[in-house]
């Protein structure tokens, strides 16, 4: 193939992605400096940083930021620890392993709105839900999950969806672990923990960091689970930054403030993305 043709073939993907990135991005940055509310189109003009100021002096901003960090941090901890445990448990030959594997990763393929509804209604509902039935059977007071611990409930739902992702990645990586090395270690009398620390964990170091970074990108943007279950409430108890910006744009119709929030979200995601891109760059061979 001659180089000119190669360039022509590459052009569409590069140009389209460039436009897809640069047009909305510059518009967001532009809007964030403008007075722009869809309800009051006559008021307009450059306002400098006052949209930003409005966004982060909003009484909901700090709770939303804390909720975002708690949500991302807890889900990461749960999914990585559980994912490691389960993938090590399943990393041995046994009958029905294929079925167990499929059962374990299935939650990851459930659309987020469905999983949110299943948890909200059939499991966590304080009157007719399964958890309430268990509590009643044990003579306990059923927990009002979404009322009393909304953020924790969402952490559970998201962890249920994403632990399978961690399992899938760790399981795949464990398959490439040197079995002879493990057998030698066993013969030398190395116990489970010693093997785990000295062989398995170093082998999984990269996959673990990749899983953490990718989940951070996705979890900073959690939306559907909150939209379907708590709508960010009660109050702002389960509002994260994504949901707060959504509220600003779709309910307050404040384009300026929503865009300032958007810029903030982009910066936050980029901090993570820098590390992720570096990690990916090491494996991409051209």
């Amino acid at each position: 193939m001659n180089p000119a043709l190669a360039r022509w073939l590459q052009a569409p993907s590069i140009i389209l992605l460039f436009l897809w990135m640069i047009v909305p991005l510059s518009m967001t940055i532009w809007f964030s400096t403008q007075r722009y509310n869809l309800l009051y189109p006559e008021r307009s003009g450059f306002v400098g940083f006052s949209n930003y100021e409005f966004f982060w002096t909003d009484p909901a901003f700090f709770p939303a930021l804390t909720n975002t960090l708690i949500l991302v941090g807890s889900v990461l901890l749960i999914t990585v620890v559980l994912g490691l445990a389960v993938s090590i448990l399943i990393d041995r030959p046994f009958r029905g392993r294929g079925i167990a594997r499929v059962m374990l990763i299935s939650p990851f393929f459930i659309m987020p709105t469905v999983s949110a509804l299943v948890w909200k209604n059939m499991l966590m509902d304080p009157n007719n839900g399964l958890f309430a039935a268990f509590a009643n059977a044990l003579g306990l007071q059923p927990i009002e999950w979404l009322q009393d611990m909304p953020l924790f409930s969402i952490i559970i739902m998201v962890s249920w969806q994403w632990t399978p992702f961690a399992i899938l990645i760790f399981m795949t990586s464990l398959q490439s672990q040197d079995q002879e090395q493990k057998e030698a270690a066993t013969l030398d009398g190395a116990g489970f923990w010693s093997q785990f620390y000295n062989l398995t964990l170093p082998h999984l170091a990269r996959p673990i960091s990749i899983v953490i970074l990718i989940q951070m990108i996705f979890h900073l943007a959690i939306f559907a689970e909150i939209f379907v279950t708590t709508s960010g409430g009660p109050g702002v108890q389960s509002t994260n930054l994504t949901y707060l910006i959504y509220i600003q744009s779709q309910q307050a119709f404040d384009v300026g403030v929503a865009s300032a929030g958007g810029v903030f979200a982009i910066i936050l995601a980029n901090i993570v993305a820098i590390f992720l891109i570096r990690a990916i760059g090491k494996t991409l061979t051209v």
Partner: peptide, 19 residues
């Protein structure tokens, strides 16, 4: 180019919601 393409995937949707 490939790395840059991947980086566009990391742009949060909510960041470009308004545009």
């Amino acid at each position: 180019i490939l790395m840059w393409m991947l980086s566009t995937k990391m742009l949060p949707a909510v960041g470009v919601l308004m545009p």
